[in-house]
């Protein structure tokens, strides 16, 4: 019996059967049919789902009046394990709490741990759902409150696909 088993390559045949089954199923089914057999996604065309807790890029938030929520308590700057946040305190007319004159976020060193958001007592920053964080220059990774592309309030033009379309990140109630 064992000699027969050794002679007949049934083990190989069962493996071939399994792989053949997957080939046949994929071959006979349209790539974009409702039920995907394949696990890969044709990324830019096919939207992908992002979990609500996804940790993407740091983004500052405004309140209902369009004011920057941040009050410069420096909690995020202190807790940040890689020191990517730099804040300068300042004053602004008609505002009691301090106002950040400088809020720099150096994304190339950011490790997306979300400690800053956790430490913020004012819900003034979030990590948004942006995962396309590529840029052409190193300088483009340092994001501040100003600048054409590196605005802390807006998503970068590179990451058009990565924000879930239902939510508008520019609106103040974006969370």
């Amino acid at each position: 019996m064992s000699i027969l088993k050794k002679l007949l390559p049934l083990d190989i045949a069962s493996g071939m059967k399994l792989t053949g089954k997957y080939f046949g199923r994929n071959f006979l089914q349209a790539n974009r049919s409702k039920k995907h057999i394949h696990i890969t996604v044709e990324y830019p065309e096919t939207p992908i789902s992002i979990a609500p807790r996804f940790r993407g890029r740091l983004q500052m938030l405004r309140d209902e009046q369009g004011e920057i929520k941040c009050v410069c308590c420096l909690a995020c700057e202190k807790i940040c394990p890689t020191q990517v946040i730099t804040i300068s305190k300042g004053k602004k007319e008609g505002r009691k709490t301090p106002f950040p004159t400088r809020y720099d976020f150096e994304m190339e060193r950011c490790i997306f741990c979300e400690f800053c958001v956790e430490s913020c007592g004012f819900d003034s920053i979030i990590l948004n759902h942006q995962f396309e964080l590529a840029a052409y220059n190193r300088e483009d990774f340092s994001i501040g409150m100003e600048g054409q592309f590196q605005d802390m309030f807006r998503v970068s033009p590179v990451g058009q696909h990565s924000i879930s379309s239902t939510k508008n990140p520019d609106s103040p109630d974006y969370t």
């Binding site: 997957y22 994929n26 790539n31 394949h38 890969t40």
Partner: peptide, 13 residues
């Protein structure tokens, strides 16, 4: 393509 289909992915598209 064949190895891609066998390995539940799409191969070159």
């Amino acid at each position: 393509k064949v190895i891609g289909y066998i390995q539940v992915r799409l191969g070159a598209t």
